[in-house]
Simulated scan of single mutants.
Amino acid sequence: MSAGTLSYAVELRTIASPALWAVTVAALSLLLLVDLLITRRPREESVRASVGWSVFYLLLPVLFGCYLWAAHGGGVAAEFFTGFVVEKSLSVDNLFVFMLLLAAFAVPPALARRVLLYGIVGALVLRVVFIWLGAAALQSGTWAFLLFGAILIVTAGKIVKDVLRGGGHEVDISSMRTVLLVRRFVPVTDDYRGSRLVVRERGRLALTPLALAAVAILGTDIVFAVDSVPAVYGVTEDPFLVFATNAFALLGLRALYFVLQGVLTRLRHLNHGLSVILAFIGVKLVLHWAHGVWAWVPEIPTLASLLVIVSVLVIVTVTSLLANRRDRVRAASARPEPVGEPAGER
């Protein structure tokens, strides 16, 4: 290739045979069906059950990665594990927004897991669409690497800007376009009607607040997909691995939400870490494009990417815990000392 060729078509190769695709999709559908049956009856999620399901959904990608290692080698397995860590860290950030949406819509605890399942299914469908679009973009030319890299770098900058402004995670339902659009054309009941999304009221169909919460989460899923799919394409160009990392990262979100519900707000530096990870992968994509044009431009190996991503997540977790501990010490020292009674009055 000549140095003047700034873009060329990418031949996407996949390790997945039609049989592997079929088995993976069938297993995913079965797991989603099980989740749907579990959430059929409205009830509060127990922490013990959530921990059990979370462990189960963390073991699945480990076993799948071991299979990839045995069947296709360590390089493919490293790409899968790196992509999974990226997607899982982004999905934990998504849980912050889900938590705020559930609180903003005052979703009863007994219905929370049903809304989360709707969000997970919607996210998975949208990821499939974006994965297909991403693959088509890559096949049309390497300009897609530059586009994906730019999206991630801009997103990282936006996260840093929000952090510096002290905005963090904020949800304003009244300004959400998806919610405004639904309210404009469809009547909405004032209260929840169990797990029902649609009811008949005064002779016409009306949505319940549960349906609005599901629509709001679906709207945020679109934003999440724009970030997550380019991020994992920065790790692997195999559409099957991109799909698998997204699927495994999303499957355990419902259970993980109830496990981390009390911990999420303590990870105050998670956004800082995600901005670093997204910017790093964005640079990696740009270097990957440049290496295809000019061979002397270095690329970032997958194992090095995994080391950087894991290190960033460990660092922001430790700094968050230390910051929380510092605040507790300051709060304790700021409390006024109890005034003792005079000795003569005892």
Rank of each mutant, 00 (worst) to 15 (best):
A231Q: 00
I315T: 09
T208W: 05
G52R: 09
V115F: 07
V310Q: 04
A331L: 13
L126Y: 12
V226Y: 11
V97Q: 10
L31H: 02
G119K: 08
A216L: 04
A249R: 02
S228K: 10
V215D: 07
L117H: 06
L6M: 10
E341A: 15
I131Y: 07
V25R: 02
A106Q: 12
G119Q: 06
S46T: 15
G157P: 09
L124H: 08
A206Q: 00
D172L: 15
F56S: 09
I300F: 05
V34L: 15
F84Q: 01
L270E: 06
A206K: 09
G74P: 05
I217C: 05
L253Q: 14
C66I: 13
G344I: 11
A78G: 03
L267Q: 13
A112M: 15
L63F: 05
V259W: 05
G219T: 06
Y118I: 07
W69R: 11
T265C: 01
V115C: 06
F80S: 11
Q139P: 06
N324Y: 08
I222Q: 03
G75I: 03
V62E: 01
R330T: 10
G157C: 04
A112C: 03
V283H: 11
A279W: 13
V316H: 01
V23I: 14
V125P: 01
N324H: 13
F96D: 04
R268W: 12
S275D: 05
F130D: 00
